[in-house]
Design a protein around this nucleic acid. Structure first.
Lengths: 194, 194
DNA sequence: CGGGCCTTTGACTGGTTTCAACTTCTGTGG
DNA sequence: CCACAGAAGTTGAAACCAGTCAAAGGCCCG
């Protein structure tokens, strides 16, 4: 049960089958259809979410109802509005599925119980948070280092399959540029190859 | 001893005086003069660093030897190149003092010992990493949400004292714009007031 | 008091956005 | 299974935000 999650945890800390059972009791599974919301801006974020299957994206509402993506979360990634979750204040981000997904929620109250019962998970989540922090340090660097065009090219070569998996307007939003301009870059890129 | 650090930890987890002693044994204090380096790009990052006094900044080397700042760390903040520290790969960031500082290093080997002796610190660092992660989520949002001018104005109103504490070229670099353009914004801003 | 670093100024450049119109794709109901 | 509507992608023109470059002025610290 929840095999991806258990396997993922075991990459970082020991967890017996029995302990895995103890953890699963606290998990609240959520099935999401494409475009369904997991968290809306303004709600108080109740949980940390693990993507067991499918894919989520995090966004915020810019002016004129334009949504800007800030993160993706694929199978094996945790995601949440950590500011909202930690302080129990209204979320400034929304989270939704860009594919049909199975998400495992670990609610804030459940987190405390889990840490009490399975102390090694404190370590596991420390490592997850550290990984997320590190990823953002790297990401910020990329944003500052490259022009939009370089960002696109390097993203494309680093995650070629992922680029196929999501629509272009989402990719544009994630990379911080307009769909129109991304289209232009793609054209420029393809003429260069031929 | 290391009173800021101990006090900081006690905001998050219990720590007896005796336990504080046990922790301090593993701390490696480092005094830095203004502009001295704590970590150079290319080195392997050995530790997580706590700013007991003074202030540090994190940067990377862009082309033409231009340094771009990505983070500051003031008293009471932990900082490190977490990618380099976790994977023990060469750092892609540098860290240096922008004021005379007292820094407390917790080396990677020491971290493991500390977690074994004082399990509550696993929780403390989980919370610290989560805080850092959350701060970066928010930061990325600000970058995407605002123009350079808005970024400057909001930063100035949020941290007025900090703006006084650092030279303008550092602030410009941190905000992701050129010193020349920041100068222009400042002028525009001041004429608007008068 | 001198030299180098920091800041300012102005002209020019260009990467990227905006807007609007058009085309292509997609999925949903009849 | 087709039709059609709305969503997604493309194109081109105009505008603009911000960077680059070069030179001058100010200021801090040895």
């Amino acid at each position: 049960m929840y095999s991806h999650l258990i396997k993922h945890i075991r990459n970082y800390v020991p967890l017996s089958d029995e302990q895995a059972e103890m953890l699963c009791v606290h998990i609240r599974p959520i099935e999401l259809k494409k475009k369904e919301h997991l968290l809306q801006e303004g709600e108080i974020c109740r949980a940390n979410y693990f993507v067991e299957q499918g894919g989520l994206c995090m966004y915020f509402n810019h002016e004129k109802g334009v949504e800007k993506l800030t993160q993706f979360a694929m199978e094996g990634w945790w995601i949440s509005d950590y500011m909202s979750m930690a302080l129990q204040k209204p979320a400034t981000f929304g989270i939704k599925a860009f594919e049909d997904s199975l998400v495992l929620a670990l609610d804030v109250e459940a987190q405390e119980k889990v840490y009490a019962e399975l102390p090694q998970l404190e370590r596991y989540f420390r490592l997850m948070m550290q990984r997320g922090y590190a990823a953002h340090q790297t990401r910020l660097r990329y944003i500052r280092e490259r022009t939009a065009e370089e960002t696109y090219l390097s993203f494309r070569s680093q995650f070629p399959d992922f680029v196929q998996r999501i629509p272009q307007y989402m990719l544009a939003s994630y990379l911080g540029l307009t769909p129109e301009y991304l289209s232009e870059l793609r054209k420029k890129d393809s003429t260069r190859i031929s």
